Computed example of a mutant assay.
Amino acid sequence: MGCTFVVVSTLHDIMKSEGRAGKSSRKNINKLLILSLSISDLLVGVYTVSICIKAVQVEGSYCNVDIDWRSSTTCSMLGALLIIGSEQSVLTMVLITVYRLHAVMRPMSRPKFKTAGISLMVSWTVSILFGLIPLIPSNEDYFLKFISFNDTSIFKTKVNQTDQKRIITWLSLMKNFTTEDNVTNTGWGTLRRLVAKINPSNPITTTHEFGYYSSHTVCLPTLFPDRKDKAWMYSFILLVTNFLAFVFMLVCYVKLYRKASSTKALESAKSRDQRSKQSATMQRKLTRILVSDFLCWMPVCIMGFLKLAGINIPDDAYLPTGLLILPINSALNPFLYSNLPDRLLAQKSKLVRWLRSSIPPHRKSMKMNVIEMDTSKRVGLDGGNLKLHC
């Protein structure tokens, strides 16, 4: 709901100010970036709500539908949706960082709205590719982990990548296969073709396929990669991308702080007061963003690096990662980049002032009398001299 509200309100602001301010204004570019951030975080919200709905539907009977659910197209699409939303959220935050760094370092130059739009198109393309590459059929030999057949009398319930090679070698050497079927290459397509020829009149077919997003009940990708998995390098690239993005933002924001501090001494008192307010507002936003990103993404990156180093990370860690860490980060980002937290703090201060002013005068006088009575017990007058009672 929060991301939807930010998307609608930002779209309204862009359409309202387009004719008045022009497409080259910094304000419209900032709103465009906030819109992209909100949409990407909205995708993560759709993933979270879908997983929660599915959990309610299969409560108490999940074991009966585990195989069907994890090998379903719905689970794979939800996993891809999570990757697209999460990666685009990170890339949009990097673009916002670059934009703000450019605004501070070159305040006289005006960035073009078209340039910001092209940058967002490129980032969305990269994010969509990150999410959909594991689902491309031609990449199944890299991302597909298990398959199961409808004839379990010959094959066990699930055939993994190691069993695939042995079965292909065995089938290619059977006497009822022609020389054309004696293959040297291995792959899931070759396995399906050879298995189907065992009984041409009633061919054996696959019933379930477990891909990159099918390892866990919440349809997460393999964020904590294992070197035994063929796709571990792809997961490693995702972790490194997010880790480097955070480091890049951290360096840029430190540079922004230093630049803002160095310009204070060169400005007049009036302009210094205005810029100090703007700088304080920006610093509060940046601090909230950095803390949020650090608390949400760094634990995921660290656990992934520890897994690659050989330290065992239990699969139970995927559940809080998919339902708590990443969704919370995505839900907070649009509000952290907007002025809503500052407005809420301003309303809170107004509420405190109103509560203080609403105290009746007689209660204030009663409070002062109590203080004076308590003081008189400890302080007395004797012959005009002040005495303190121990």
Rank of each mutant, 00 (worst) to 15 (best):
S201H: 15
T263F: 05
S127Q: 08
R26L: 01
C219N: 01
L351R: 02
H208W: 06
P200D: 05
L129H: 11
M233T: 11
A55G: 00
S50T: 09
L223Y: 09
G380H: 10
V379R: 01
V291P: 04
R363V: 15
T73V: 14
I167L: 09
L144V: 04
S357N: 03
D226P: 07
G189S: 10
A269H: 05
V6L: 01
S119K: 07
L256R: 08
P203A: 15
L323S: 06
D226N: 14
A103T: 05
H389T: 15
K54Q: 14
M121A: 03
H12Y: 13
S24I: 00
A265K: 11
S261H: 04
T184Y: 13
F248K: 06
P225A: 06
V291M: 07
V291Q: 00
L82R: 04
D315N: 11
R275S: 12
S357M: 07
I14E: 03
V247A: 01
P327N: 05
I29N: 14
H12D: 03
L250E: 01
L95S: 09
T241M: 10
N185C: 13
Y47S: 00
K270E: 00
R258D: 04
F113G: 10
I128P: 06
G79P: 04
S25T: 11
D41F: 13
N312E: 15
I136F: 12
L308V: 02
L81I: 14
G60L: 07
S127G: 03
K112V: 09
T157Y: 00
G304E: 04
K367I: 07
V195P: 05
F305Y: 03
L35R: 03
I29T: 10
K27C: 08
F113V: 09
F210K: 08
L256C: 02
K255H: 02
D374W: 05
I154R: 06
T178C: 05
S268G: 15
